[in-house]
Every structure is written in structure tokens, then in C-alpha cells.
Amino acid sequence: MKKWNLVIDVAQCFNCNACTMACHDEYFGNEFPGVAAEMPRLGHRWIEIRQRESGAFPVVEVSYLPVTCNHCDNPPCLKAARDGAVVKRADGIVIIVPEKAKGQRQLVEACPYGAIWWNEEKQLPQAWPFDAHLLDAGWTQTRGAQVCPTRAMRTLHVADDEMQRIVREEKLSVLHPEYGTKPRVYYRNLDRWTRVFVAGSLAGEIGGVTECVEGARVTLEKDGAKLAEAASDAYGDFRFVGLEEASGAYRLRIADGRFQAKTLEVALGKSAVLGTIMLEQRPAA
């Protein structure tokens, strides 16, 4: 049977908040019995975009992670719920039933993703219900997916085995698979959020002036093995992305016919911005 899934491309999210605003528009001032009570005017972000900066001036990467209810197939909130306050629908959607969940603050604590919000006035735990009332009425995508200008958010209505094929093909991942919650919200390019980079800029004296060194071969090694190779660009810049945070010692080898070879040791914590690396001229032959 076909079930609902959400796919978010971290590389295409630029924090425009259209999905967040559309979500607010749908639930603020409206209530949908059995699906959602009204969202408060302020204070709730059922789709929340988290921000991360990586690197240091002048080499910085910014990534954004929209976080919402994961509609887990193994939902911790369901286990924590009393009196049928949380329902797992056959189509995959998890609903905190507003009529039954009053006072059940433990649901907020139960979600390891921080995606359940406490409505103080209504004494109600609330989360994004996957716009279930709209999908039930024939909508084919969620409000957030509809307004996403970069198509970073997609609604997929497919059978589970088909979804797993897409997961493999598009290299999708979920947040904290180690929790064992089996989310139905998948992320593409999650590396942008989790991984770090090493960057530098090569310069050297050419014709008596300091110039950017273009076309130098830069190799990245770990434990003596070559991991990656890159050529410096017109500005002498090189960048190795997708490295694991705090992954320890790396070696960078820089080779260019015009200059002496250079080797740098980098201990990687967060992203490392090495700044301008001056290359020494080759001694005259």
C-alpha cells in the first residue's frame, strides 16, 4: 500500500521559511478535528529550520536543516502516549489526537527530535500532522512542499519498498537512525549538515608579484592513504568536503611544477580554513 513520505534536500534549503509560514497559515486560526487543534499565534514552529555555519571567514558554508515530526514507523511518542492519544495511521502518518492528548506533556519529552511542541494555553502537545486532512481530501502534496521555491521539499506517496529503492538511489538518510525510530522524513545531502571541510588558498610569486596559484594538485591523505585530489582554481582555492567532524590527522600534499612541493598536517575538529598558503619558488636549476 502507498504511504506518505517527505524528502528534504539539505543542499537546496536556503532558509526562506516558506514551508514554516505555510504550516503556520494552515494551523493558526484553524482546527481540524481528529488531526490538529489550533496552533498558537506565536511560539510554535512545527516545521523548524535549524541553521549551521561551517568554516571561518572568508571560507564559510551555511546549511539549513528543516526539522519536523518524523512520522516514525517506530514512534517513541506512541509508546509514551496514554488513552490512544497518538495514532499511527495505515498510510504512515502519526497523529497526536487533539481530543485525547490534553495534558500529556510527556509526549514532548518523548520525542528525541524536539519536534513536539507544548501548547500552554490548551495544555496540549502538538506536532505537524503531515497535513493529513488535506491529503485525505485529495491534495497530493503538503503545504510546505507546495510553496518550496527550490523543490527542496517533496511529498512522496509510494509503497515502502518503492521508498527504500528511492532511498538507495538518491542516497537519502534519516535523522539519528541509531534511535531506531524509523522516520518517514528523509534527507538528501545530509552531509551538508553533518560533515566538515578543509579549505585553503594557494599563492606564490610569479614574475615578481604574488599571484593566486591556479592548477596546483592538492591531495588529501589520511593514515598514508590518498582520500581525494583536487586542482586549485583561478583564485588558488581548494576545498575538500564531506569529511567527518573530529576525525583527527590529515595530510595535505601540494604539487605544482612552478613551486616547491609542500606538505601540511591538519588536525580536523570542525571545518579547517587554512587561509593563504604561500608556495616557495623552485630553486633555479
Binding site: 526562506c16 521559511n17 497559515d25 486560526g29 499565534r41
Partner: peptide, 12 residues
């Protein structure tokens, strides 16, 4: 059509 976030918040 696309919609800016400052328009999507219009109900509020």
C-alpha cells in the same frame, strides 16, 4: 506562482 514568506504570513 511562487509566494514570498512575508506574504505567506498574511493571515497573521
Amino acid at each position: 506562482t511562487s509566494v514570498a514568506p512575508h506574504t505567506l504570513c498574511s493571515k497573521s
